[in-house]
Design a protein around this nucleic acid. Structure first.
Lengths: 201, 201
DNA sequence: TCTTATATCTTGCCAGTGTCAAGATTAATT
DNA sequence: AATTAATCTTGACACTGGCAAGATATAAGA
C-alpha cells in the first residue's frame, strides 16, 4: 500500500473537482472547505496554499461548471440546421442542465463569485460564455425571420430571461405546474414570427 | 433606566422582523441566529423557545417577506383600469421589489423553506399568493384580448417566468445589459395580442 | 395568599466552520 | 550538496448551530 506523498501533485484541480462532487452529493448547504480537504485526503488548511478564500475556491468551481454548462448548450445546437428548432433545443438544454443538477442554480448565480457580462455597448469586456451561445443561435433565427437587428438585444434578453426564469422556478422552490413547459417558452418564440407593430415607446 | 424584563413579551415576532432587518443590512451570507438574538438583546439560545431550527426562523421570515411582496404587487395593479397597463405595472413592481431588496431573491427562493404551489389541477392546495395576483391580472388581460382560456396557464407561466428571470439575472449576478428592460418583457405581452396560429404540437 | 406548575430566558457546553501563524516536509535551483 | 522555494501539517482562534441544565418570571390552583 503506497500512501500518498507529502505533496499532492495536483491539489488545486483536485480541490475544484472534488468540491463540485461534494455540491452534487450534499447540495450547496452541505459544502464546506474542510469536507473538501478531507475528501482529498489532505489537511484542513492545505487549500489555503491555492485559494486565499473559500470564495475563491467557489469561484474557480463556478468557472469550471460554467464551462461544462456552455459545452452542454453548444452541443444542443450543434448540427441543427433549422434556426427555430435550434433555439428551442437551446432552451431545453438550459433548463435540463439545472434540472439534472439542482444545486447548480443557487451555486452558479448566487454563491460563486462569477460575474455575468453581457455586451455592454461600449465596454468590451468578455461576454458571459453561455450567453454567447444564445446570441449566436438567436441572431441566426432572427435573421431568418426577417426581424430588424435593432431588436436583437430585446429578443435575446427576453428569451434568456424566460428560460432562466423557468429554470429558476423549477429548480429553486418546489414548483408544481401541471402544464407543458415546452409550450410555455415557445410563446415567446412565436411572438418573433409575427409582424406586430412596435410603435409603443 | 429601565432594563428589559426577563421575558421579552413578543420575542417571536421581534426575531422575525429583526432577522429581516439583518438580511437587508448584511445580506443573506451575513445572517446568523446569534446575531439576530444579540440584536434583540437576548441570549443566543432564546430563539429555540420559539423556533426549533434556524430553518424555521428563516421560513417564518420568508412568509413575512412574501406577504410584503404580495402587498407590493397588489398595490401596483390597484386602480389600474387598462388590463395591459396593469400587467406591465405588475411586472415592473415584481422586478423593482427585488431591485430594492437585493438579498430577498436568494433568500425567498433558495433559503427560506417556503414552497411555491401553483394551481396543480386536481390538488387544491393554497396557491402561492404572488402568483395569485399574476393570475387575476393576467386573466383579465387575456379575456380583453380574446385569447382562449386554455392558454391561460401557458401565458401566465411564460410571463411569470420571464419577469422572474429578469429579476434573477439582475439581482443575482452583476449583469450589465445596456438596453431597456421594460421593452424586454413587453415582447411577451405583445405576443398575446396577435393571432398567430398555434398548430404546432 | 401561598404553593405549584408552566412558559420563557440564561449559562455552559459541544462539534463543526473559516482563517491565520508557525513549523515540518518535499521539490527545485544553484 | 546546500540552499531556496513550494507545499502541506499542526495548532489555535473566533464564530456558528444546537443541546442540556438551571434560573427566573408568569399563570394557575390550593
Amino acid at each position: 500500500m503506497k500512501q500518498r506523498p507529502y505533496h499532492h501533485g495536483d491539489l488545486r484541480n483536485t480541490l475544484i473537482e472534488t468540491g463540485i462532487e461534494l455540491i452534487n452529493e450534499e447540495g450547496l448547504g452541505g459544502f464546506s472547505l474542510r469536507k473538501v480537504a478531507a475528501k482529498c485526503g489532505v489537511s484542513h488548511a492545505a487549500p489555503y496554499g491555492h485559494f486565499k478564500d473559500v470564495q475563491q475556491l467557489l469561484a474557480a468551481m463556478g468557472e469550471h461548471v460554467t464551462a461544462q454548462f456552455t459545452a452542454s448548450l453548444q452541443a444542443s445546437v450543434e448540427g441543427q440546421t433549422e434556426p427555430l428548432s435550434a433555439m428551442e433545443k437551446l432552451g431545453t438544454a438550459y433548463i435540463a442542465f439545472f434540472g439534472q443538477h439542482p444545486a447548480y442554480l443557487p451555486f452558479l448565480f448566487f454563491q460563486s463569485g462569477i460575474t455575468i457580462q453581457v455586451d455592454g455597448g461600449e465596454e468590451d469586456a468578455p461576454a458571459y460564455p453561455p450567453f454567447a451561445v444564445f446570441r449566436t443561435t438567436g441572431c441566426r433565427l432572427f435573421r431568418s425571420l426577417g426581424l430588424p437587428p435593432e431588436r436583437d438585444g430585446q429578443m435575446l434578453m427576453a428569451y434568456w430571461s424566460l428560460v432562466h426564469g423557468v429554470a429558476s422556478l423549477q429548480s429553486s422552490s418546489g414548483i408544481r405546474y401541471s402544464g407543458n413547459w415546452q409550450e410555455v417558452w415557445q410563446v415567446i418564440l412565436q411572438s418573433g414570427g409575427t409582424e406586430d407593430e412596435i410603435n409603443r415607446s
